[in-house]
Amino acid sequence: MQELTRNGITIDDTFAEAFGMRATAIIITAPTLKWARQAAITMTGFATSVIGCGCEAAIDIDIPASKTPDGRPGCRVMIFAMGTDELQKQLKTRLGQCVLTSPGSACFAGLQGSASLDLGSSLRYFGDGWQVSKKFGGKHYWRVPVMDGEFLCEAKTGLTKEAVGGGNFLLLAADAGKALAAAERAVAAIEKVPGAIMPFPGGIVRSGSKVGGKYKGMMASTNDAYAPTLRGVVKSALGPDINAVLEVVIDGETNDAVAAAMRAGLKAVIDLGPRRGALRISAGNYGGKLGKFHYHLKDLLP
C-alpha cells in the first residue's frame, strides 16, 4: 500500500463504500431552540442504522428564527431508509409520537424532492374533526388543536432518491481518549455541513462491523481486524502503535453532500494532528462490489 501522510497522520489508500438510499427532511420549530432540538432528538432516537431501526436519522443543521417558516427557532432533521414505504412509515410514527407530543412544536417540509411523503396528512386525524386545513402560498398546512395550543404541520414533505448512506472513515489512535478526541473534532466539523447527518451516537461508532459471522443468521459481526484486543490473534489491520479505533458514518442528501462532509471531517482530524488525535485514517468498504458510491480518501484530503 502506498504511504500517504498529512500533518504526520498516515492516510490509507482506500475508500469508503456507500449505498443509494431514500431520504426526506423536515423542519421542526418550537418557541425556543432547546425545544425544537428536543423534539428532533427524540424523533431521531433509536435511528442509527437501517438494519435494526428501520431508518437512520439525525439533526442536519439548526435554523435561526429568521429563516424558518413560522419565525421561531428550529432545526432540520433528515431521515434515511432503503425504501419509500419504510421511510413513510418511520416518518409517520416518529412524527406522531415524538414531534406532535413535544411542547410548542410545529413541523414543515424540509426538502423539495421528486416525490412527496405524508406529513400532516397522516396526523390530522388526531384532531378528531377539529383539525383545520389551510392552503396558501402554494402550500398546504394542517392545524391540529392540542393541549398547549395547536400543532401546525405542513401536509407533505419531499422525498429524494439521490441520497447516499454509509460514507465513513476510521480513526486509528494510540489510545481511546485520542481516538475520541479526533472523532469529536470530525463530528463538530461535519455538523456544519448542510445535507449530511451522522446517525450514530454523537456521530460516532465504536462497534464497526464486517459482513457475516460464524454464527448462523448473523448478518454482521464485529470487525475483528480493527479490534485492538485481538491484534496478533486474528489477521489484524492494526499496527503495534494503535490501541483504539472509532468510525464516523455519514449519510447525505446527495453524493456531493457526503463528499463535502468527509472532506470537512478529514480536515478537522488532520488539523488536530497525531499527538492529540489519530495516527492513521482508514475507511470501510466491502471490496467495492456492493455499493455504488466510492469515496477515496486520497481525493478528499485538504
Binding site: T29, P69, D70, G71, R72, G104, A106, K134, F136, G137, Y141, R143, D148, G149, E150, L152
Partner: peptide
C-alpha cells in the same frame, strides 16, 4: 387569546405576497 404558530406563518405569507 391563543398562543399558536399559525398567525406568524400566515402574517409572513401576507407580507411576502
Amino acid at each position: 387569546r391563543v398562543e399558536i404558530a399559525f398567525p406568524a406563518l400566515f402574517d409572513r405569507y401576507l407580507m411576502e405576497e
